[in-house]
Design a protein around this nucleic acid. Structure first.
Lengths: 130, 130
DNA sequence: TATAGTGTATTAGTATAGTAATACACTTGG
DNA sequence: CCAAGTGTATTACTATACTAATACACTATA
């Protein structure tokens, strides 16, 4: 599994790991029961301490996306579809909420804010399609 | 001008100050040329060090919302309407972008994400109307 | 021009976040 | 049952963020 870390982006490494693995799980790149890359293996590839990877995995476990098996490794959690949707909703809600608060504090109407959101989405999509 | 600080919210004080004053400026509670509350005065009310207030003001100046007059005080910047809109757009863009990135990484379609956004906006609005 | 009012540069202290080193505990398979 | 593979608890180091203390510089005006 490809996983790209930017050591100079200012974004904490473990957060970059969380995002990318979460994306893999949510978009089907990793499926129920698949084993995650070993802590040491991934740490080696990223030239990072194993604890940093372990930290990322812990967050994913807390989110309910991943399950530990002691002495064995970590695996994509086998959960009901509903549950995964719920996790997705929660994550999205947290992210969207901040934007909403900002919009309202700036006195931006719902229509204007929605249009803004749509435009940004388009932009991002077309960028990543290149 | 009313300004509420929560010392236990975990949100840095200077950021709370930034948000609230920005809101005042953007929604017309503070108008072009109005003097901001004195650093010491505001610091006194909030039971906080003057430098903390000064820091908040510095950020607002960097955003272009506020102007310093040495030895005199800080004032709401007199700018073209266009310019203020531009600042607003930039702030909103930054906030919205994170939500958009999350939505895309979660594999959420534009329609679904937009609906999500709208719902959150409604919720927040109705909460603050109470 | 002196005083009382502005804001701030500099410095320091504290808390928190991020990363790493080390030693440990669990599981599986031969 | 032990060796080689998992992950991790504990501890420590470093960098950064936040707040505060202090002393200073600028401006208006009486």
């Amino acid at each position: 599994m490809l996983l790209e870390i930017d050591h100079h982006s200012g974004v904490p490494i473990y957060r970059q790991v969380i995002r990318q693995i979460r994306q893999q799980i949510m978009t089907g790149g990793l499926k129920d029961g698949d084993q995650l890359e070993t802590v040491r293996q991934l740490a080696g590839r990223l030239k990072v301490n194993p604890m940093t990877v372990s930290k990322a995995y812990s967050f994913l476990e807390a989110e309910g996306l991943v399950e530990r098996r002691r002495g064995v490794g970590l695996f994509v959690a086998k959960v009901e579809k509903d549950q995964r949707e719920q996790i997705k909703d929660q994550l999205l809600k947290d992210a969207v909420n901040k934007a909403v608060v900002m919009a309202i504090q700036l006195g931006v109407s719902q229509e204007e804010a929605a249009e803004f959101f749509a435009r940004q989405y388009e932009e991002y999509k077309s960028k990543s399609r290149r």
